[in-house]
């Protein structure tokens, strides 16, 4: 059995774990947004203190970078097809799938 340990590849100045973007040029914006989201999620959303997404402004900045990266890498069509097959509105359940949405 392997023992989990706590060394990670990307750690920022504050000691937080950084998870990378598929597009390295968006790493920084992603890290900024993630930090905001994670604290909102643990301190506010889970505590039932806030049900409005408070980090939206940072997300839009990050999203802009991602959208450009998707176009550059020719991934837009792939994304569109996947979204059609299992829409966000339908919780990601594929079409013609008999799974009951709870």
């Amino acid at each position: 059995m392997l023992t989990p340990h706590t060394t990670y590849q990307k750690i920022d100045k504050m000691g937080n774990i950084l998870s990378a973007s598929f597009a390295p040029e968006c790493d920084e914006k992603k890290a900024t947004y993630d930090a905001c989201f994670n604290s909102w999620y643990t301190e506010k959303f889970l505590a039932g203190k806030s049900i409005t997404n408070e980090c939206e402004e940072l997300w839009h900045e990050y999203k802009e970078c991602i959208d450009i990266a998707l176009v550059k890498r020719g991934m837009v069509k792939m994304m569109e097809e996947a979204r059609e097959e299992a829409s966000f509105e339908n919780s990601g359940i594929p079409q013609n799938h008999d799974e009951a949405k709870k």
Partner: peptide, 17 residues
């Protein structure tokens, strides 16, 4: 939300919202 990267899932190289 902070699951990746972890040393056992080195095959995951990026997670984007």
């Amino acid at each position: 939300w902070q699951k990746y990267p972890n040393e056992m899932s080195s095959h995951v190289i990026g997670v984007d919202v």
